[in-house]
């Protein structure tokens, strides 16, 4: 399976006098889980927004495969295969879980004018199949007809991930997917992420929980003050002196 790789070259973003992202290069390889760590204010969130298209870089380019997507809106990027989840789960709270997923699965059909005239079919068999398959593979069948707004946090996170998967991503960008989860649910999440990567999807994981990031990723970028201070396999980054000094305050790493 050949999926596209996400790359950012020389990304720069400033707010007033502060350089939030300072000349960062990053690659999210297909079939791999890439981690992004850093203390508060290190520029993780800004870099994430530059990749998803919520913000525009002042300098630098973002590529998905060979296509330059630097100036594309987030929804266009999503249709090209770059799908994100949010720190606060972003489910469509009045819709059922199945319909939430269906929105993701149908994102490449935009015959809105036809829909207005009542021409479009009610649903697409293929889209529904994708939804059913995804629900089953994540063990969410029982939730299919629940209204999303009533789900507990753990289920919300899973459903949001399922919805992202239904949009058939090449690259999945996850913003603190484990926040709000308890230990048990976090373990379950990391198992799922490995499954997703095994299917060829590139995953970028941003999280406060260094323990989780080191345990699940293949490649880690550590940011401090808007710059990448260390990159490599988890064991390399873990032993990096800068990273160690920054995270000393976070408690013993090993």
């Amino acid at each position: 399976m050949s999926r596209a790789e996400l790359t950012g070259y020389g990304l720069v973003r400033r707010y007033g006098g502060l350089t939030a992202v300072d000349n960062v290069n990053i690659t999210v390889a297909p079939g791999k889980i890439t981690g992004l760590i850093g203390p508060n204010g290190a520029g993780k969130s800004t870099l994430f927004s530059l990749l998803t298209g919520v913000e525009q870089p002042e300098r630098g380019k973002v590529f998905l495969g060979r296509r330059n997507i630097t100036r594309m809106r987030p929804d266009v990027r999503a249709r090209r295969g770059l799908v994100q989840t949010f720190q606060v789960p972003s489910l469509f709270s009045s819709m059922t879980v199945a319909d939430n997923l269906l929105v993701g699965a149908e994102n490449r059909h935009r015959d809105y004018a036809g829909g207005l005239l009542g021409l479009a079919p009610h649903g697409n068999v293929k889209a529904r199949q994708i939804v059913t398959r995804t629900l089953n593979s994540l063990g969410l069948e029982g939730f299919a007809d629940e209204t999303a707004g009533t789900l507990p946090t753990g289920a919300l996170r899973l459903v949001e991930l399922a919805r992202a998967l239904c949009a058939r991503p090449d690259v999945l960008l996850l913003d603190e997917p484990a926040s709000g989860l308890d230990g048990q649910e976090t373990e379950r999440l990391s198992v799922l992420l490995r499954q997703v990567a095994a299917e060829g999807v590139g995953v970028l994981l941003v999280d406060h929980d260094v323990e989780l990031v080191f345990s699940v990723t293949d490649q880690v970028y550590a940011m401090v003050g808007g710059r990448v201070v260390a990159e490599g396999t988890p064991s390399v980054v873990r032993d990096d002196p800068t990273v160690r000094s920054v995270y000393l305050a976070q408690g013993p790493l090993a």
Partner: peptide, 8 residues
């Protein structure tokens, strides 16, 4: 934002 994120 959630809708845009999945391509709507």
């Amino acid at each position: 934002e959630g809708a845009a994120a999945v391509g709507v």
